[in-house]
């Protein structure tokens, strides 16, 4: 998304702090989310992501700092904030005894859409989220991916301008994950602002306009996906050869960052894309060498954390994920 002159912050946070007992979970967070963009908060379990979302969604009081959400002060105008936001947490916030339609209907009533308006909105969302077949089924009978879709549909009933998605794809199968990504992109196309948390660099890269990396309650890096990825050296190919001669021939024509003669492997920087792979293999063909084995290593959360904190992604206590 390009930022226009009219862009206002959907979320602005300054000096946000939160402690649970003696444990500091958020330690002076500053961030700004521009309206109509996707902002990803990237970090391992226990980094404070869920705490952050719970504070921004008015579910948890901060210990310090100032926060404005959708143009309203989080503390003084909590109800105005609530009217503007939608929250989809890690655990499906659905009523499992009710059917899909009844769940959506409940949200329509709580948003006071009226009988006809509510029905239209519910029908629209059932179509849009491909839930027509299961609309009359109790949610408890649906798969995890379907429940997550119902959950998000419920969040959208009130047409919020700002949506918090707390680890929207954790625990989903690959197909449901891609489906969720498609939905997020559609939302943004409609002008909705999305604040999402994730443990997956790939997800942040796919969806976000800006990424902030959260570690031990501090933001250790922030920028566009490209800016961040440029600072991560992690992406590479590992090529294994049958014998040392082939390894040396290959090493003479490739841009090798690491060579291990005893394991017969070479490490070559790469973005992992098909074009890049083809180029490497073509170069090897030119010198008549074929690797025995090839693995693609794309940068992941560990690489991000290694790049920005000098250590691996530390998993804190699981307490905050509740």
């Amino acid at each position: 998304m390009s930022t226009t002159l009219l862009a206002r912050p959907a979320v602005s946070v300054a000096g946000l702090r939160k402690t649970f007992g003696t444990r500091t979970v958020l330690d002076g967070i500053d961030l700004t989310v521009t309206e109509g963009t996707v902002f990803a908060l990237l970090g391992p379990n226990g980094a404070g992501k869920t705490t952050m979302v719970r504070i921004l969604a008015t579910l948890l009081a901060a210990d310090g700092g100032s926060v404005r959400v959708a143009g309203h002060d989080l503390v003084r105008e909590a109800d105005a904030v609530r009217a503007a936001i939608g929250l989809t947490g890690q655990f499906a916030a659905v009523d499992k005894l009710l059917t899909v339609r009844e769940n959506l209907r409940l949200m329509a009533d709580l948003n006071r859409l009226g009988r006809a308006g509510g029905r239209r909105r519910v029908d629209h969302l059932i179509q849009r989220f491909d839930l027509a077949e299961s609309a009359a089924k109790p949610v408890s009978l649906l798969s995890g991916g379907q429940q997550r879709r119902v959950d998000l549909a419920m969040t959208l009933v009130g047409s919020p301008r700002l949506i918090f998605l707390d680890e929207p794809t954790t625990g989903l199968d690959p197909r449901s994950r891609v489906e969720m990504w498609r939905i997020v992109r559609e939302l943004v196309a409609d002008g909705v602002t999305v604040f999402l948390t994730t443990q997956y660099l790939e997800e942040a890269d796919q969806l976000a306009d800006r990424i902030a990396v959260l570690d031990h309650g501090r933001i250790v890096a922030e920028g566009t996906p490209d800016e961040l990825k440029r600072r991560i050296p992690g992406g590479h190919l590992v090529l294994r050869f049958a014998e040392p001669g082939a390894l040396r021939t290959a090493a003479s024509v490739l841009n090798v960052t690491h060579s291990d003669e005893s394991a017969l492997t070479l490490q070559v920087p790469s973005d992992g894309g098909v074009a890049d792979l083809r180029a490497v293999l073509a170069t090897l063909d030119g010198v008549h060498v074929t690797p025995d084995h090839l693995t693609v290593h794309t940068p992941d959360l560990d690489d991000v954390f290694f790049a920005f904190t000098g250590g691996p992604a530390s998993t804190g206590t699981d307490e905050e994920t509740r």
Binding site: R54, A57, T58, L59, D79, A80, R82, A83, I85, G86, L87, G89, Q90, F91, A92, A93, V94, D95, K96, L110, N111, D151, M154, T155, G158
Partner: peptide, 13 residues
């Protein structure tokens, strides 16, 4: 114990 209470509490109701 389910997420639904968080949903209600984050709504202007």
């Amino acid at each position: 114990t389910e997420g639904i209470v968080d949903r209600f509490r984050s709504m202007a109701i």
